[in-house]
């Protein structure tokens, strides 16, 4: 039960909204964080918390692309394939990943580590091509960078190549400052 595990967090979420149903997406995130995807039990429990019917939860969850209703790989690689990234090589990025991991969009590696998806614009067109892996953005991708990211994730579970707070282009550094 989510309520046992995340009671305080759930209460905090509920407190933000005058109408309960607004907490639906935030609670679905809690559920997804817990299991990597949103289980049927979680949907039923959330329906109960918000006084909704399970179909009401279901109609909402299926509208949004970020919720998984089935387990996905530990690392969900989402390469942007919209025009702006495509202009500077996002299809090639998908190609690299395909050849390195042996999976195409919609597939998961046999070890369950990586799932690859081609997704629509992620608001990083200035630093294209790019991809998102779980919560993190990786931008201005090159083949070498992709290699390092995948290796980092495999070995350490994290990669330092992920983006920090966004700014591009970077200001020209004035002499004497870092």
């Amino acid at each position: 039960m989510l309520k046992d595990k995340y009671g305080k967090e759930i209460e905090d979420i509920l407190a933000r909204y005058p109408v309960k149903r607004s907490a639906l997406i935030p609670l679905l995130y809690v559920a997804q964080r817990d299991q990597g995807y949103v289980t049927e039990e979680a949907m039923t429990e959330i329906a109960g918390i918000l006084k909704l019917t399970p179909p009401q939860v279901y109609e909402t969850i299926t509208f949004y692309t970020m919720f998984n209703l089935k387990p996905v790989g530990t690392f969900h690689i989402q390469v942007c394939k919209s025009l702006m990234c495509a202009l500077v090589g996002s299809d090639t990025v998908i190609g690299w990943i395909k050849s390195k991991l042996g999976i195409g969009p919609g597939e998961t590696t046999a070890d369950g580590l990586f799932t690859l998806s081609a997704v629509e614009c992620l608001a990083a067109c200035g630093t294209a091509p790019m991809m998102q892996i779980n919560d993190d953005y990786y931008e201005r991708l090159t083949e070498e960078k992709v290699d390092r990211i995948l290796a980092d994730l495999k070995t350490a579970g994290v990669s330092q190549l992920k983006s920090g707070p966004y700014m591009w282009p970077l200001p020209v550094t004035v002499k004497g400052e870092t």
Partner: peptide, 23 residues
């Protein structure tokens, strides 16, 4: 309040629906 992957939710009334926990 985080959205969950739907471009249309940038349209202001869709945004409101989404914020109300709906499609």
């Amino acid at each position: 309040h985080r959205g969950a992957g739907a471009y249309i939710c940038g349209e202001e009334t869709a945004l409101l629906e989404s914020l109300e926990g709906k499609r």
